[in-house]
Simulated scan of single mutants.
Amino acid sequence: MTYIIYAFAAVFEISGCFAFWAWLKLEKPLWWLAPGMVSLALFAWLLTLVPSEAAGRTFAAYGGIYIAASLAWLWLIEARVPDRYDIGGALICLAGASLILFGPRG
């Protein structure tokens, strides 16, 4: 369930950030910021649903998911295929995220 929450959080974070990017870099209208802010609020709320005793650990583990989701965005939305270094780096990050989130704690 944690990975599902992280996946949805990543979609909302990337969408929200992209709205700001589009407004500033692609000269989209100002109203693009409204759904961007809603999306970022949903992202933050979703992270609170992750079962973890520490926000920092939750955010650190989420980083690996965010990286993989950003590369999916690159491919699916921006139509740029990630290269082998992108994929290899994402796999390393996902392994690290899993270790942070699910590693045994004393």
Results as ranks from 00 to 15, higher is better:
residue 1 M to S: 10
residue 1 M to A: 10
residue 2 T to V: 07
residue 3 Y to G: 01
residue 3 Y to F: 12
residue 5 I to K: 09
residue 6 Y to G: 09
residue 6 Y to Q: 11
residue 8 F to M: 15
residue 8 F to A: 15
residue 9 A to C: 09
residue 9 A to P: 07
residue 9 A to I: 05
residue 12 F to W: 15
residue 13 E to Y: 06
residue 13 E to S: 06
residue 15 S to I: 04
residue 15 S to Y: 06
residue 15 S to W: 00
residue 16 G to F: 12
residue 16 G to N: 12
residue 18 F to D: 11
residue 25 K to V: 14
residue 26 L to Q: 14
residue 31 W to Q: 08
residue 31 W to C: 05
residue 32 W to H: 14
residue 33 L to I: 15
residue 33 L to H: 13
residue 36 G to A: 00
residue 39 S to C: 15
residue 39 S to H: 14
residue 40 L to E: 10
residue 44 A to M: 10
residue 45 W to G: 03
residue 45 W to V: 08
residue 46 L to E: 13
residue 47 L to K: 13
residue 47 L to A: 14
residue 48 T to Y: 04
residue 49 L to K: 09
residue 50 V to C: 13
residue 50 V to L: 14
residue 51 P to T: 11
residue 51 P to S: 14
residue 53 E to P: 01
residue 55 A to N: 02
residue 56 G to F: 04
residue 60 A to P: 09
residue 61 A to P: 12
residue 61 A to Y: 07
residue 62 Y to R: 05
residue 62 Y to P: 09
residue 63 G to V: 01
residue 64 G to I: 05
residue 66 Y to Q: 07
residue 68 A to K: 03
residue 69 A to W: 00
residue 69 A to V: 02
residue 71 L to Y: 04
residue 72 A to E: 10
residue 75 W to A: 13
residue 76 L to Y: 01
residue 77 I to T: 03
residue 77 I to V: 11
residue 78 E to A: 13
residue 78 E to W: 12
residue 79 A to W: 06
residue 79 A to G: 08
residue 80 R to N: 02
residue 80 R to H: 03
residue 81 V to N: 09
residue 82 P to V: 13
residue 83 D to Q: 08
residue 85 Y to F: 15
residue 86 D to R: 00
residue 88 G to Q: 01
residue 89 G to Y: 04
residue 89 G to L: 03
residue 92 I to L: 06
residue 93 C to H: 04
residue 93 C to N: 05
residue 95 A to F: 02
residue 96 G to R: 05
residue 96 G to Q: 01
residue 98 S to E: 00
residue 98 S to K: 06
residue 98 S to P: 02
residue 98 S to V: 05
residue 99 L to A: 09
residue 101 L to A: 02
residue 101 L to W: 03
residue 103 G to F: 15
residue 103 G to T: 05
residue 104 P to V: 12
residue 105 R to N: 09
